[in-house]
């Protein structure tokens, strides 16, 4: 897989650092004493039961929300604006704009940056082939399958050119066959173009398959109850990956931590 080496190389570089973060909504404590260190280009999977504050954590990291107490550092920036500038956030639903073609949807971050439509398209169009979307540039989102729409959404997130990707159950809305396919595709896409990734999911296999470290969060109030390093032998297919003993052992560890 190779990304473990990259992480070693950049060990000193901090991607995301969350220190003693608490977040309450009124009387409800969503997150409690969260400490999380993510090296640059490391991939961290976050699993936990529904309502444990996983999504709140992502909102805090990318500067859409502020912690009640504690500090968050993303690529050296502490303020919400600095965090917002460093992070791209991809939600569970693809949130493609139905009035834009797929190409125009993927170009959105560049247009927001001030590029003309023509310049933005010129940059984004060559990426379509690699994302398995070749020939669909001028289609509208409703003409695409769920898996393809999610790939467009991911392409849009990548086009923003940000180092930190916050993926909030990116494949949660897909059926299991499509999800397996897109997981494998995402793994290779991230190997080609390493990014610092926080992946929130309720799918333990997905977390183990795509992450260097899996962090388990307890039911509310959300606390980190386990950090499980993952090292899988490099294999070609998802099927081979999920059959290997290391994978099965890691999955067992995560499940134990979830049930503890």
């Amino acid at each position: 897989m190779g990304h473990a080496d990259v992480a070693d190389e950049l060990e000193d570089a901090t991607g995301i650092s969350v220190a003693q973060v608490n977040r309450s909504f009124g009387d409800i404590v969503a997150l409690e004493a969260i400490d999380l260190h993510v090296s640059r280009h490391q991939r961290v999977g976050i699993v936990g039961p529904s309502g444990c504050g996983k999504s709140s954590l992502l909102a805090l990291v990318c500067g859409l929300d502020e912690p009640t107490s504690g500090s968050i550092n993303v690529l050296g920036g502490h303020s919400a604006a600095e965090r917002l500038a460093a992070c791209a956030w991809m939600p569970q639903r693809d949130l493609l704009l139905p009035w834009r073609t797929v190409l125009a949807n993927a170009s959105l971050p560049l247009e927001n940056k001030g590029l003309s439509k023509r310049d933005a398209y010129a940059i984004v169009e060559p990426l379509f082939e690699r994302f398995g979307l070749g020939g669909f540039e001028q289609r509208f989102p409703y003409e695409l399958s769920g898996g393809m729409r999610q790939r467009v959404s991911f392409l849009r997130t990548l086009v923003a050119g940000k180092d930190v990707l916050l993926l909030d159950e990116p494949f949660g809305a897909l059926d299991s066959i499509t999800r397996a396919d897109v997981q494998q595709w995402l793994r290779s896409a991230l190997d080609d173009e390493p990014r610092t990734v926080l992946l929130v999911t309720h799918d333990v296999e997905e977390a183990v398959l795509l992450s260097d470290v899996v962090v388990v969060i307890s039911p509310r109030p959300g606390r980190i109850v386990a950090r499980i390093p993952i090292s899988l032998a490099p294999v070609n297919t998802r099927r081979d990956a999920v059959m290997q003993p290391d994978f099965i052992a890691a999955r067992g560890e995560v499940l134990d931590a979830l049930e503890a």
Partner: peptide, 22 residues
Amino acid sequence: MSNVDGNNGASRGLAEAAPKRS
């Protein structure tokens, strides 16, 4: 729209979209 597309998502999507458009 069905979500079930495996590795052949692209080709299937094309076949599906083409008649719809016409």
